[in-house]
Design a binder for these strands. Structure first.
Lengths: 161, 161
DNA sequence: CGGAATCCGTTCGGATACTG
DNA sequence: CAGTATCCGAACGGATTCCG
């Protein structure tokens, strides 16, 4: 299995990518964040092919990222579940990185704090005590779910780098 | 153009995905974070096909995410550039989400603060003043780079939701 | 060791048409 | 409106081979 093999890997990142790493998935999730709920609106706003959208929605619903509800008038609403809302940091991280490094300057969309109307802060990785960490400040260590191979790969190099 | 059309879109997220959204890209970046630098090590650690790795490395170098340097002994080193290191929040966000929602419980890898050895904090989106924001606390507004269509889509819905 | 090149099956994704 | 079904070209990705 080409893609699914990723999910089997001993890696949370691969697992996450297996769920939302497909080409349109995160765009669909972002649309949902923006308030889009109808099939047709997704099509119009994203310019996505209908069969692909159908496939992505199905997958996201199956994974519990979106909920699907038929309305009284026959329409169908897709909305983010808590699991889907938990993807916010992922979206924000990607958007901010895109704005900073991969864009032709002017940000098309700005996320603001509803209370103050001011833009949100740049995401930063922090220690448990709140200190902002750089990549050099961090270290990857085997967790409880690490297999032997992974453990061997992460432990030995004491502080080489 | 199938994929490239994404990059043309008026959306930082799409731009970011165009660069690091391909199937192996973020895994490669994560490996680089873990200290992997040699072609063969990427192959061994990720189980990626050599031609695909070659393609991804080339792209990431071209995009300025990785640097490529030939060493005295003829070997080649790939390392993260600042632009690549700036992807850390993206990786962390995905890993944490995967750990929390898409995994069979035990985290295979734990990122720790090198100074204290304790796990890093969960990522959270914050307002400019540091308050933690929920998705409901946020609002997407058109930025300076928004086109007419996007502007029309983001403005009108005053506070509906 | 670090690729480039080729082969080949699978999948992706757009377009279109059809259904309820 | 919300899909489903089909077609088809393009891309992906693995395996293998060859090379400096």
């Amino acid at each position: 299995m080409t893609r699914n093999s990723l999910a089997e890997k001993n890696c949370s990142l691969a697992r996450a990518l297996d769920v939302v790493g497909e080409w349109w998935s995160l765009l669909v999730v972002r649309e949902a964040f923006f308030g889009t709920r109808r099939f047709q609106d997704f099509v119009d706003n994203l310019g996505i092919a209908r069969n692909i959208l159908s496939s992505r929605l199905k997958r996201l619903v199956a994974e519990g990222v979106l909920s699907r509800a038929e309305r009284a008038d026959g329409g169908v609403d897709y909305a983010l579940t808590p699991k889907g809302e938990a993807l916010m940091p992922v979206l924000v991280a990607l958007m901010q990185w895109g704005d900073t490094f991969a864009n032709a300057e002017p940000a098309p969309v700005v996320l603001t704090d509803r209370a103050t109307g001011t833009p949100i802060a740049p995401l930063s990785v922090r220690a448990a005590d709140g200190r902002v960490l750089t990549p050099q400040d961090m270290r990857a260590v085997p967790g409880p779910g690490a297999d032997a191979q992974l453990r061997a790969r992460l432990m030995p190099r004491s502080s080489k780098r």
